[in-house]
């Protein structure tokens, strides 16, 4: 028996996505991207069709390579204007029970901590139905928007991304135990400090040291974010580097944590 076929809808918080010019079609409503009913109705349609998820693309920059100018993109509505995809999710989650949501977020221009917290918030609010499309961007215009001259070289972007993943995993996996929020009314303890430890990560590009409150209020069944990107990037060829990276990081991270936070390890209450 062959496997069941998985289906996502692929869209973007923008007018037009993969068919430039079709916004002129008399029945196209993608121009309503900035109104919630467009998205809540779409979410209901997809759930009625048992779609696995709605996968939302995103770009932070304008397509200004063609003609060395943003004019063509602006004139033809080529993925511009484009709003933040993640903010659509709570509204759509509120009108569905099972539909998944994949959100594209470019890790090149955002600190890992606020990003990880935002995704955790979406994980909680959607009750475990959020995924992350991990991307590093391809537009220099996005780098310029972030105050840089141009984006990092291609392979450097992926090296940074490897570390960024370590940082967010250390925040999501290494900080709070699932049962840390004991909510013990009798003892007056909301969170057991022994079940929380700082997420410590030290790498070439990042140094993270935060006590992050990501798991504490998650529904019992909410899990980590499924994520990944299907493009054929060179980093996927050959043996996966992550396996080796993570074996070392785990031990180093735990030792560093004990060295820096002895009091925290003993607890405070």
């Amino acid at each position: 028996m062959p496997n069941e076929i998985l289906l996502n809808a692929f869209s973007m918080n923008a007018v037009g996505h993969q068919s430039p010019g079709l916004w002129r079609h008399p029945r196209d409503r993608s121009g309503e991207f900035n109104r919630l009913p467009f998205w809540t109705e779409l979410a209901r349609t997809l759930e009625a069709g048992l779609f696995d998820g709605l996968f939302l693309a995103d770009v932070l920059g304008i397509y200004d390579v063609y003609g060395a100018s943003p004019d063509a993109a602006l004139r033809h509505g080529t993925q511009v204007p484009a709003n933040d995809p993640s903010l659509l999710v709570p509204a759509m989650a509120a009108v569905t029970k099972n539909l998944g949501f994949g959100v594209t977020s470019n890790l090149s221009y955002e600190n890992a901590f606020p990003f990880a917290r935002r995704m955790s918030t979406l994980d909680h609010l959607s009750e475990g139905r959020i995924g992350w499309n991990v991307v590093t961007g391809y537009l220099d215009s996005a780098a310029r928007a972030a105050g840089l001259n141009k984006q990092r070289a291609h392979d450097d972007r992926y090296a940074v991304a490897e570390e960024y993943m370590d940082v967010v995993y250390s925040l999501w996996e290494g900080s709070w135990d699932d049962d840390a929020a004991v909510r013990d009314v009798a003892r007056g303890v909301f969170t057991d400090p022994d079940r929380v430890r700082p997420a410590v990560y030290r790498g070439r590009h990042f140094f993270a040291r935060r006590g992050a409150s990501f798991r504490a209020l998650a529904p019992a069944h909410a899990g980590d974010l499924p994520g990944g990107h299907i493009a054929g990037r060179p980093g996927l060829r050959g043996p996966p580097r992550r396996m080796r990276v993570h074996v070392g990081t785990k031990r180093d991270g735990a030792e560093a944590s004990r060295r820096r936070y002895p009091a925290r390890r003993r607890g405070r209450s």
């Binding site: 289906l7 996502n8 299907i230």
Partner: peptide, 19 residues
């Protein structure tokens, strides 16, 4: 592959037609 990310031509009609 295990499935598809279905892009639209006309939104949301393309998705309604698939359903």
């Amino acid at each position: 592959v295990d499935g598809f990310n279905l892009a639209y031509v006309v939104a949301p009609e393309s998705f309604e037609d698939v359903v």
